[in-house]
Design a protein around this nucleic acid. Structure first.
Lengths: 245, 245
DNA sequence: ACTGGGTTTCGAACACGTTCAAAACAACGG
DNA sequence: CCGTTGTTTTGAACGTGTTCGAAACCCAGT
């Protein structure tokens, strides 16, 4: 990690280099090919040698390009991780089609969605630690809250919207709008735990899911109770307040 | 960041170099002096130039030692951050003495404790991002959940125990044991938000506190209600289950 | 004083992420 | 074909975190 010479914010003019992040479509000519080769090589090496163990020189060599060329497409090593991120959302969404078709029970659907994420992420468990660490940095474009990852975030939230709407549960009016976002936050928490989970087969995380899903489900149902209603309202307000960074 | 040559776990035998982390006591001879000079220089530079902007060479020079010597005491640049961490807990605890003396109202005390943390951490806001990022790494000794930071964690949890016990609130039996730990987790969440908060004067974080403290307070009181009790119990169980990593 | 072993300090050397100026290539108008 | 202009590719060079073998220092035991 090299310091950025002078000021804090490095490049003053940033005229958007990235052509298009659309998944597999070959938008621009076949430079898209090179890009894919690089990200593929990176993910493979990350899986095999971990994040730290993978050098940019190795990625470039493995992709059959020069180091400089890798940097032409990805402005840093961290940015290569976006590939991983995208793949997670894609895989989870795909797996959820089946899950959602199987049951309308809220808890079952929530459980399924989380397990789907876990399955998709499993091969990258070791390297995910490094990933979420860098992603946790505020200014970092990879942060789950950042501008740059809003497409991934939005589609993840949309997934939870679908999870709720297709389920048999009735959500109180106050929470209805914000519940998907809350569930997304909950998933973030589970992921955070998973990252730290070194138990064989990530048993602990699965335990966490088995135990928390019923609690969430119960909470959602309770949210309509008169005693709880103010809390629901406050929660919804809070989310609204804190959003829009 | 250099790769660790061969396997994932680097050094096979790790015969504990660190003499003793006790705060300011000059335990071993006056090598302790050097250590302090280094950490002081580091914190100062971090504050002035940020984490990235501070080079190990600069830290060493500013402390009047050689680069190699700095590495004799701290095995990495990240490890220098422990100094920051320790200072936070110390400052917060000190400030809370006054806060706790001033009121027995649960919400007031909780609010005060959080604001105390905020005040202590404020000068390091920019650099805190980098800090928590690396701290978020599972294997990292700086992780708030790790073995290495258990003293800091324990004393933080103890602080919350005191906060509760000295307050006028009555906690349900099920939650009583685990509530301090839960509050510590809550604080972790606030800190996480603070790290990402770029509003002037960290207004947003203060808003978050003003809004969530009453909610927490309400939740704690509700925790004894018959409808909620099972949830409290489950929560307590969960914490017990997941602890003991 | 001298010796020997431990601790502390040094700074050159290394590996890696990143940058940059220039070369190679592609596309197109004459 | 030849220039011109824009895109892609290259690899040497730079700055930084980190390592390592050797020097300097300290201090008890003789």
């Amino acid at each position: 990690m090299t310091a950025s010479a002078s000021g804090p914010a490095s490049n003053p003019t940033d005229p958007e280099r990235d052509p298009n992040p659309a998944a597999t479509t070959a938008r621009t000519p076949k430079s898209e090919r090179t890009r894919e080769q690089i990200v593929a090589a990176a993910l493979r090496l990350f899986r095999e040698q971990g994040y730290q163990g993978t050098t940019m020189r190795a990625v470039a060599a493995s992709a059959g390009v020069s180091v400089g060329n890798a940097y032409y497409y990805f402005s840093s090593k961290e940015e290569l991780i976006q590939g991983f991120y995208d793949q997670m959302v894609t895989d989870q969404t795909a797996a959820c089609v089946e899950v959602f078709a199987a049951s309308t029970d809220f808890a079952a659907r929530l459980r399924g969605a989380l397990l789907a994420w876990l399955d998709a992420a499993d091969p990258y468990h070791e390297f995910a630690g490094r990933f979420f660490a860098t992603a946790a940095q505020p200014d970092n474009p990879l942060s789950p809250f950042s501008r740059a990852s809003s497409p991934a975030r939005d589609s993840s939230i949309a997934l939870y919207r679908e999870l709720i709407d297709g389920s048999s549960v009735t959500v109180g009016a106050e929470l209805s709008a914000t519940l998907p976002e809350l569930l997304w936050l909950y998933q973030l928490g589970v992921v955070l735990y998973w990252v730290h989970d070194s138990s064989p087969g990530t048993t602990r995380t699965r335990l966490l899911i088995e135990h928390t899903v019923p609690m969430i489900s119960r909470l959602v149902r309770l949210s309509r109770l008169p005693v709880i209603r103010p809390l629901s309202r406050q929660t919804a307000e809070l989310v609204g307040l804190l959003r829009g960074r």
